[in-house]
Design a protein around this nucleic acid. Structure first.
Length: 451
RNA sequence: GGCGACGUGGCGGAGUGGCUACGCAGCGGCCUGCAAAGCCGUCUACACCGGUUCGAUUCCGGUCGUCGCCUCCA
């Protein structure tokens, strides 16, 4: 097993991955709040942590990957009301859409995808602990976490409680003992069409508590990797960390790993900014291969710009790999030169999951194969690409060529043999108009479907 | 204002105290009737100003700029 390290937000440095139990890793990555179709930005953590899991599995770990779905939230109420439907119905349909959209990424599903609405008992229990330990208080059916009762608050996001701009007139302000306090439980408000019974009356969980509860319920305490977009560091993850430690005296997670933002026009892609590109349209336009290559083309912690040039380039890179598979690869063991590149690939991933470096090793592998005189065994490349979810690039299905295209190809071959190149070129154009490209090679003319 | 990250060749994007990243595009060449694909070569960068050092793109300080969080947010 390689030594694997990742950048931990809390300590601000690379940290060696050390499991609680040898050989086992738990990953919890915050998923979306389902009140609309997800956008490319939402897809990044899904991709990053799905691929990280693949890598850890490849390295021999038994990995449990949890990605929650937040289906109770103010935004859901608001969006449902606007559409004139029940919030439960909206959450349900958007959850379905989320599954469909992320399925299309072709990376499989996380091992668990818990819903906030199905973790209410655990949430209530956790809040109970917090009250009992003096870290939370009930007020008129709401329950708040008392930030100043927890001295470590701010540890994850590296901020000082006293430095924060506080006390904006947000709801519940008059019930809070301190503007810093945040809601664990919110009493039902008029217009809200879902609510659950609790010791504090009918209501629903606040935003952060559900993740603490779901993560603990599935992965237990002190699991290895808690992840998500870096915009969640504060307050979401800070609050999660605080709640769990305050309730149990044990850290929620050992390591906090955050991905950078996807940007559109130099600004964070976000529904609130209004500059979103929805995932399913990106998938239709560029294909999942291009999307995956695009995400892997930048280090997960850096921001990446979403634009046509970058996506087209990613598609081109994917095409190049598939092209090599078509013309040079065959099933079987890879040549000796492959070993060093394979090592470079996995070493790159072991050191803070450096996918751009890993992709560089792939590129060199492909070039090496292309310059080979004979066919090359694809085993190592398949193994490498498999970790990035791109092994399908190697499975080039021989296309079904329509008879009329073959006929034109034969006519062209005859014209070429007769050195009637003008005719041959016309025939090529004709073939092209039918969606096929002719490539003349030593073994005759090949036909390729134009993508 | 506070905290954090970043500024690399035409465009992206890694990385390192001294040694070719890599990709895409361009250009030249090989191959080829032409084209495409592929291969070879080429374009040799590290915001600015100081400092440390035999030597800094890489370490330290400052300046300028960009972005993220501090309120919902992947």
């Amino acid at each position: 097993m390689r030594v694997i390290s990742l950048h931990d937000t809390r300590t601000g440095r690379l940290q060696v991955l050390e499991p609680r139990e040898p050989g086992k890793i738990g990953i919890y990555a915050c998923g979306p709040t389902v009140y609309g179709r997800i956008h490319v930005g939402n897809a990044r953590p899904f991709v990053v942590f799905s691929l990280l899991k693949r890598f850890l599995v490849h390295e021999g770990y038994e990995v449990t990957f949890v990605a929650n779905i937040t289906d109770i939230n103010d935004k859901i109420y608001a969006a449902a009301q606007k559409e004139g439907i029940e919030s439960e119905q909206l959450a349900l349909s958007m959850t379905d859409a989320y599954i469909t959209d992320t399925d299309a990424l072709g990376l499989g599903r996380p091992d668990y995808e818990p819903l906030a609405s199905q973790t209410i008992d655990e949430i209530i229990e956790l809040i109970g602990w917090l009250i009992e330990r003096g870290h939370a208080y009930a007020a008129d059916g709401d329950v708040y976490f008392q930030v100043r009762s927890y001295p470590e608050y701010g540890e994850l996001s590296h901020r000082n409680v006293d430095d924060m701009d506080q006390g904006e007139g947000i709801d519940g302000a008059e019930r809070k003992r301190d503007p810093l306090d945040f809601a664990l439980w919110k009493a039902r408000k008029p217009g809200e069409d879902t609510a659950w019974d609790s010791p504090w009356g009918k209501g629903r969980p606040g935003w952060h508590i559900e993740c603490s509860a779901m993560a603990e319920a599935i992965l237990g305490l002190g699991f290895e990797i808690h992840g998500g977009g870096e915009d969640l560091i504060f307050p979401h993850h800070e609050n999660e960390a605080a709640q769990t430690f305050a309730a149990h005296g044990v850290p929620l997670a050992r390591m906090w790993v955050h991905n950078g933002m996807v940007r559109l026009d130099q600004a964070k892609m976000a529904k609130s900014v209004g500059n979103v590109f929805v995932l399913h349209e990106a998938l239709e336009q560029y294909g999942r291969d291009a999307l995956i290559v695009y995400f892997c083309g930048g280090h997960y912690r850096q921001p990446i710009e979403f634009d046509d040039e970058r996506l087209s380039e990613a598609r081109e890179r994917g095409r190049g790999i598939a092209e090599a598979a078509r013309r040079r690869l065959e099933p079987g063991d890879s040549p000796v030169w492959s070993g060093a590149l394979r090592e470079r690939f996995f070493d790159a991933l072991a050191k803070d999951f450096n996918t751009p470096r890993a992709l560089a090793a792939v590129a060199e592998w492909v070039r090496e194969a292309n310059r080979s005189e004979q066919r090359v065994g694809d085993r190592d490349l398949r193994e490498m690409l498999g970790v990035l979810g791109l092994e399908n690039l190697l499975d080039v299905a021989p296309a079904e060529i329509p008879p009329e295209v073959i006929e034109l190809r034969d006519l062209r071959e005859r014209a070429r043999a007769e050195q009637d190149y003008a005719r041959a070129d016309r025939l090529r154009e004709e073939i092209k108009s039918l969606g096929w490209e002719v490539r003349d090679g030593p073994e005759g003319a090949e036909l390729l479907a134009v993508r």
